[in-house]
Design a protein around this nucleic acid. Structure first.
Length: 594
RNA sequence: GGGGGUGUAGCUCAGUUGGUUAGAGCGAUCGCCUGUCACGCGAUAGGUCGAGGGUUCGAGUCCCUUCACUCCCGCCA
């Protein structure tokens, strides 16, 4: 028998009353009545109330002991009287009368209490992460993460995918995020890079004939953090399939995510089949390629209205003449909202760097008319045209913004979120997945005015090879897709370009000649020349999936040992300085800017 | 690289218009208490008010600089 415990702290029940047991765990809480002491003993599984009184010679020692000390207690399970049953805990019908105890791990005065619902600064939480992780909420989040990963792994196996590991030390890639670099001792002056994703490897696995691959893959990108983005490292469910089209990938991912979200959350999935929204349409209707479809509001373009003679809103008319667009958001039945509702949104928009959000409400007297600060600028006919275009009805309000396309998309997108929040239109108890499809292959870099890959250079362009119009590269679409849930981008993927000739052509448009492609992507391009299957895949972010399932807004709440915003691990003291001999061995010397 | 927020006891926070000795809860220490489950009661200790400079008779409070944490923009194929 194990010498530390006969049961864990969530095991004892009424049926155990009378038996002698020994438990080990942390002292979660003490309640000291002077001659009677209650100790809540906690482990990973739960809490058991233990009790001792002054008749016992161990009483005074236990009375003095610090919270979070690890102890082993020997005792007897007894019934609790009816009034003292605690329904909050699974073991609440019984308690253990302590006979003897032993300290297994002492505890200093705590820098942060474990038993408390208080919120602590992240600095202290990360510095003492081992204490933080004992706390209920995050402890459960991390357990959830483990269960989700193991469920996904099991599902992928059932679907016939093989799990492989790919190298962590690999080569630096020219496109994409900044690499983390590792100096090579055996190859002076040369560096490995940590993989930003196993992109090239998973394609090579397909070329190697393994058909279906997956991996819970660590990815390393040296970019700045956000609430939903860890600095340094994160995990993807990386997967790739041979002989597939876009829909084959969609079917696998929809099945997997549906099963996962149904199993680990009580929230409802709004769509059983995830809607597919072309990239261009997403930008028009939602102002972003990661729309929150729980939000029913839709953006409409009504630029044409401002070319009419019977509309006299001169500010917008002038902007439209110089190339700006007008887009609007209709809110249903808001004619009775107080003036402050509209003005708050206008004020908010100004704080977001917009020139504000104009608005009016559609009402009907004898004719249709617009009420509100700018209502008088619109004729009845123009209003009827707006109602036709936007499906607005009498009693609805219309918020308008006018700007150049990109800025207009930005402001209408966040306005859509803001207005829906103010009107409480978003059902927090749902998940709304969607696919964003038909991404453009190329885009124009606003600074350099050069054509560049808009996403992944290895994506397959749409259309038959012979029919693609390479003269108009910005119009070429790719079999490139994103999956979005509740406005959070979970991942992107693509059907890959497995035809070297076509790949050289596309790279030439982005300004790489054949020689450069051969040099930079030698592993890939070489492999594709020796019989590559058509293939494609995707890589959903594990951390973000768990974040959604755990109902957390910050990725560090589902990450066991995250780094802070400055990419430092406060507990382990990483990154840290290294000594001179290590540098010498690596043929490195430091020049630090002051 | 840029913008916003925060920084007061070990932890979480309050601190009025610039005004006498900077407070509370939790935690710690000591004492009382035999049915609590956020136990209760009493006492004690604990402060570079993030740091530096300035204005002022007087600064936790106003100004400047700076540091740390955090949120956002840039960045993240």
């Amino acid at each position: 028998m194990n010498k530390y415990r006969s049961h864990n702290c969530n095991e004892l029940r009424k049926k155990d009353v009378g038996s002698k047991v020994f438990l080990s765990g942390w002292i979660n809480k003490k309640r000291d009545h002077g001659n009677l002491l209650f100790i809540d003993l906690r482990d990973n599984y739960g809490i058991t109330q233990c009790i001792i009184d002054k008749e016992n010679s161990n009483f005074s020692d236990l009375e003095k002991i610090q919270l979070e000390t690890v102890i082993k207690i020997d005792g007897k399970v007894v019934n609790r009287s009816k009034e003292t049953i605690n329904k909050e805990i699974d073991t609440g019908e019984i308690e253990v009368v302590i006979e003897t105890f032993k300290t297994l791990g002492t505890c200093n005065e705590l820098p942060m209490p474990v038993f408390s619902d208080q919120e602590y600064s992240e600095e202290i939480r990360l510095r003492y992460r081992f204490l933080d992780l004992r706390r209920k909420k995050i402890h459960e989040n991390i357990i959830l993460r483990s269960k989700v990963i193991s469920f996904i792994r099991n599902e992928m196996n059932k679907l016939g995918f093989l799990e492989f590991q790919t190298p962590i030390l690999t080569s630096s890639s020219p496109e994409g995020a900044r690499d983390f670099l590792v100096p090579s001792r055996l190859n002076p002056g040369k560096f490995y890079a940590l993989p930003q994703a196993p992109q090239q490897f998973k394609q090579l696995i397909m070329v190697s004939g393994f058909d279906k691959y997956f991996q819970i893959a660590p990815c390393f990108r040296d970019e700045d953090a956000r609430a939903d983005r860890s600095p340094g490292e994160f995990y993807q469910l990386d997967l790739e399939m041979s002989f597939v089209e876009q829909d084959d990938v969609f079917n696998v991912v929809e099945l997997l995510l549906t099963n996962t979200f149904k199993k680990f959350s009580n929230k409802k999935l709004i769509f059983s089949k995830f809607p597919k929204i072309p990239y261009k349409e997403a930008l028009e209707k939602y102002g972003t390629d990661k729309p929150d479809l729980r939000n029913p509001l839709i953006i409409n373009d009504i630029t044409e209205i401002f070319e009419r003679k019977d509309v006299s809103f001169e500010i917008f008319k002038r902007l439209v003449k110089s190339g700006s667009k007008v887009r609007c958001i209709v809110t249903k039945d808001t004619k009775d909202k107080p003036r402050s509702f509209f003005d708050n949104i206008d004020k908010w928009a100004k704080e977001q760097g917009a020139s504000g959000l104009a608005y009016f409400t559609i009402e009907k007297d004898k004719d249709i008319l617009a009420k509100g600060p700018i209502g008088k600028f619109f004729s009845t006919e123009s209003l009827e045209e707006i109602m036709k275009k936007t499906k607005a009805q009498v009693g609805d309000s219309i918020f308008l913004a006018c700007n150049k396309k990109t800025e207009l998309e930005r402001i209408t997108s966040i306005a859509r979120d803001k207005i829906a929040k103010d009107l409480k239109l978003v059902d927090e108890n749902t998940f709304a997945f969607c696919w964003i499809v038909d991404y453009p292959m190329f885009e124009k870099d606003e600074q350099s005015k050069k054509i560049k890959f808009s996403h992944n250079p290895f994506s397959m362009p749409q259309g038959d090879k012979g029919k693609i119009n390479f003269e108009k590269p910005l119009e070429i679409l790719a079999y490139q897709y994103d999956i979005v849930c509740n406005g959070i981008e979970l991942s992107s993927g693509a059907i890959r370009n497995h035809i070297p000739e076509l790949m050289y052509k596309l790279f030439s448009i982005a300004g790489y000649d054949k020689k450069q492609v051969n040099e930079k992507f030698s592993g890939m391009i070489n492999a594709l020349s020796y019989g590559a299957p058509p293939h494609g895949g995707i890589a959903p972010g594990i951390d973000r999936i768990v974040m959604l399932l755990a109902n957390e807004k910050n990725i560090r709440e589902v990450t066991m040992f995250p780094m802070n915003q400055n990419a430092q691990d406060l507990m382990m003291n990483a990154p840290s300085e290294i000594n001179e001999s290590q540098l010498k061995e690596l043929n490195l010397s430091l020049k630090i800017k002051k």
